[in-house]
Amino acid sequence: MQIKLPVHLRVGLCSRPPQRVCVQEVLEREVRLSYWNKVKQWRSWRNKSDMVLLKDIVPAAHNNIESKFIVLEKGSTALEGKNRICLTLVADETAAVHLQLWGDECNAFDSGDIIHLRKGIFSYQHGNLILRAGKRGKLEKSGEFVMSYVEIPNMSEIHWIPHATNSKYYIQDYVISPHSRIFPPIP
């Protein structure tokens, strides 16, 4: 069985006579197209990066921050209960923030290391706003040195207030200090 192209498709085509197409071919083509669309969808889903820039992180009770940054400074390691903790200053091209290392993480990273954070959380601990991997997240060293950064603004040095209508969300209120007060910039 053969079909002719519908009239509206013939309009505006070149002077060649319309091509005759087999139904079978059309069907196969459609199957191929839908498959291709699926591949494309899958690819875009796979490549979809949830990576956020540090300037865009907002305090929340969710473990959903994926980000990449370089360690600028490392504070001394302290004990909190039975566990070691260590506060660091990290930054990317857009902002800096305080990152807290926990347990073995304290030994694993040094200044100059580039870290990939997955499922991190940015929240208050003892009144301080810090980024950390938390129980569900993960920090991984993915390189060193080759990343430029800024130290201003520092997301931990911003005063946030709950949103007027939806108190789950925080919005920026005012800047407490342009740069980190714990790790001041090198003069």
Partner: peptide
């Protein structure tokens, strides 16, 4: 081939 330290990709 290498000794990848923990927490390193």
């Amino acid at each position: 081939l290498t000794l990848t330290p923990p927490l390193e990709a």
